[in-house]
Design a protein around this nucleic acid. Structure first.
Lengths: 215, 215, 215, 215
DNA sequence: TATGAATGAGTCTTCATTCAT
DNA sequence: GATGAATGAAGACTCATTCAT
């Protein structure tokens, strides 16, 4: 009645088999993205890692890029979700304490997410499709910038922050954490994680002073 | 009797012919990097653009990557040199004016340099070789961060700036300009150049306030 | 309890279900042959067009070729049947008028049938199976040559035609119409249909003269 | 100085090596066309038959089809040239004798050429490129029809043939020989070559009578 | 018996690298 | 040393056929 299931998802129950395989492929590709960048993934590599035959992916995706993009978006989304968890809310504790928490989460996210986005800059088609997909997706990277903007606005409404240019502040904030991540990833600084995250307080201090200053 | 010179460098005098050819290859590859990213370059494309035969490069480089890396480093160096030119010195004009000049130069550099570095992040081998090469090279990207650090220290020595954490300030500064470049390159903001550079003053203002604040 | 019927033939009554499905597949393939040539048909395409699953065809045919051949034969037979309809009979009108009618019908048939047969000439296996099938089939293409032979014999019996070599005359007749069709199909002559059919009278005239000549 | 030569053409002298290999590829493909039809040739098959590596053909042809078309045109040209050889001229012997010679040559040509052209009818792109190539080529198949037309015109100028519709006569002539070839190739008639060619006199007789008749 | 997903051999094409000349 | 053609290992993608359900 039903067609046979691929060996890779045999034993898995409760799913629509087709969905299970599709998911399995995306999961596998997502896993490989931790090691290789998107453009370097080959269909055979994905198939082999998924313990599936070479041609399967074309039963679920129009082409290789569609699978890769899907995995990319999912991975990125996961990072944003992780970032989003347990963030302080406007009014919590102190501004400094909160911004420090935000900066730690942002640095973590960039450490994992930068390699993913990086490879895209060189493949125009992949980049275009990735952007398009993100725009269609609630969990884009904008979400992450948006969170910070919202937090700052929230603090402004509470009167804990003057009426500064919130966008500029956010650019400084996300830029700095990305810069730390990039420097670390490029291996230019052989720092330990402790040293890396240790740079955050100094950054937050200056930024906070800049925001609070009555100029 | 003496070995034949490649057609591309015939007529060139005063050089060691071998060196001339090597340089010619690097120059050609560097030129192509302005249009394509590193991984998209083919050896044949480089050879043809250099008006040389396909095989020559293996007489001067261990493999394609070695040539590409060398060209990459040279191109990056050139961007840094361009950045380095005509920058204000400590004591010039006002701090705000100077930092704005720095930020414009940094944004320009990142717009050109980011695509070059981007592809490297996900190719471990290429990245490693690139880093190694930079460390051997006086004109690394550190130079550019270093310039900003030096400028800020200079202003401190002149008493125009309090004794803040200069490294943190630099991270904020370079991070923000890189962030603007990245957002622009990813096409997420369809801004004009004017809008892009128009975001700099707001950023500089906050940063400057943050630095000047006596906390 | 009784085996499930395929969705495509559900509701159909009075047939052996198995036969119904087989027929449905052949009909579908035959329909597709009007647009694509035999070798370009994919099993999935046929299955989808038939609203059946990919694998069914292997329950009724040894392989794809068997189905395709069967459809091919059926389509060819249909063309011959169409040719066969409304043809003049010996004694009707004039010989010239009748031969013109035959030639028009033959040209039409070739325009539709040539592409079908064409692909077979170079695929030994397909060709062999096609021929075998035709020989087993009452509506072969021979029927069409046979019709002309019979007509000419009929006219001979009526005394309206001398005792010429009817087979040779038929070869000339069918050959000329096929030649016109082939030239047209190969796009070598960008003629309109009118120009194409307009060549028939000249051909019929010569042929008729050749037959009538007392040599 | 010069690059190495492919093993397949080593030892061959006097040619430009590049030309030699290109020719070797075309020759090989042409040879294979005797067994398979154009669309069924694979690049690997050609390369293996030519005792060359898989990728060579792309050094000399834009793609597979360009090679195949070239081989196709060459093979077709060869057939036409063979047809063209030793044909009687207007005024030679008798009309009957001459037309018989023409018909034998035409039948031979069609026996070899039909399979070649046949496969093209099913591949639109291949067909289009083939036609285009023929139009650019002096030795097209038109040449062959043209020869017959010219011969008939020649006889008309000599007064040995009345002023009939030469084009229609040619269509009958070439059509009949093609029909014989087709029937033979399709294996519908298990005739020997003798039987096949034995049908020509009857055909020529009728055609000649048709042409000569003063209607 | 019908289903339709899985299979994997096979297709064309690209390109870094080698090496006879 | 320089040449540039030859090599052959990939790469993405297709599709006839099988077979667990």
């Amino acid at each position: 009645m039903s067609p046979r299931r691929a060996k890779a998802v045999r034993g898995r129950v409760g799913d629509d088999p087709a969905t299970a395989l599709r998911e399995h492929l995306i999961d596998t590709a997502e896993g490989l993205l931790a090691e290789r960048h998107a453009a370097a993934l080959t269909t055979r590599e994905i198939a082999r890692a998924a313990d599936l035959s070479d041609g399967v992916l074309y039963n679920y995706f129009a082409d290789k890029n569609e699978l890769v993009i899907t995995a990319l978006v999912r991975r990125y989304g996961r990072l944003v979700v992780r970032f989003d968890a347990e963030l302080p809310q406007p009014g919590d504790a102190t501004l400094e304490h909160n911004l420090l928490a935000y900066s730690r989460a942002a640095l973590e996210m960039h450490l994992d997410g930068l390699p993913i986005v990086a490879g895209l800059l060189s493949d125009p088609e992949l980049l275009r499709r990735f952007i398009d997909e993100l725009h269609r997706n609630p969990y884009g990277p904008q979400l992450y910038q948006q969170r910070i903007i919202e937090y700052l606005h929230g603090e402004q409404r509470l009167g804990r922050l003057p009426a500064v240019d919130v966008e500029a502040a956010t650019t400084l904030f996300t830029g700095a954490t990305m810069m730390l991540a990039l420097t670390s990833l490029m291996g230019m600084a052989g720092e330990t994680g402790e040293e890396l995250f240790g740079q955050l307080p100094g950054i937050v201090t200056i930024l906070l002073n800049g925001i609070n200053a009555r100029s």
